[in-house]
Amino acid sequence: MLELRLIQGSLLKKVLEAIKDLVTEANFDCSATGFSLQAMDSSHVALVALLLRSEGFDHYRCDRNLSMGINLNNMSKMLRCAGPEDIITIKGDDGTDTVTFMFESQKQDKISDFEMKLMDIDSEHLGIPDAEYQAIVRMPSAEFARICKDLGSIGDTVVISVTKEGVKFFTRGDVGSANIVCRQNTSVDKPEDSTVIEMNEPVSLTFALRYMNSFTKATTLSEVVTISLSSELPVVVEYKIAEMGYIRFYLAPKIED
């Protein structure tokens, strides 16, 4: 028996919009810890890890660990039928091949049940090692989205370099090149507008902009994005989800052939 009630149902809608273009099918795992997902894109270049902690739900009942194979596009279609202010409850049962999404209006005067078919998905769960990153950049998520969009109109790849001067985003394409430097900036009233750079050592890595631009669909979930870089590792682009958890995107670098 599974029953997860989320007052701020819009969070779940936003999560689906953020990942459905990157990953088409995935297993949602439900345990005492929370509602989670780990999945790679079809080319195995990017990985998304989502966690919505059980404490963040208004009501969280998960009698035993349950994995639900879901077509994310279909789930997104159903969640789009929920109003922006609706409370969403996810209901499931062992041994059934469906999950139900219940939408309640805030005034409780409209209640909708959408039942969706589950599917069997063979997915490998990867171990993500704890890592010390050479550089961690925290910046406004909208600014990062703007940079990725702008550079994506010029080139296909972005070189992200962190030095003590700041974080540099560089691309080159047929029409020319572009270079954007963001300096550390903490002298603002709103901490979410700050750019903070923690650097242990300089690092420079190249990534496909197509994936970065896909990750920025999570911008509506958080005002701040955290980008963690190490030369031996995929970059981590993390959006915190209110008090509930996170969505983390891992992207394998382009490396010299």
Binding site: M40, S43, H44, V45, A46, L47, E124, H125, L126, G127, I128, P129, T157, T206, A208, E232, L233, P234, Y250, A252, P253, K254, I255, E256, D257
Partner: peptide, 14 residues
């Protein structure tokens, strides 16, 4: 020329 690496090169099944 830069070649795209894969996530599975860095993270493996436990």
């Amino acid at each position: 020329v830069n070649k795209q690496s894969q996530i599975t090169t860095f993270f493996t099944s436990p």
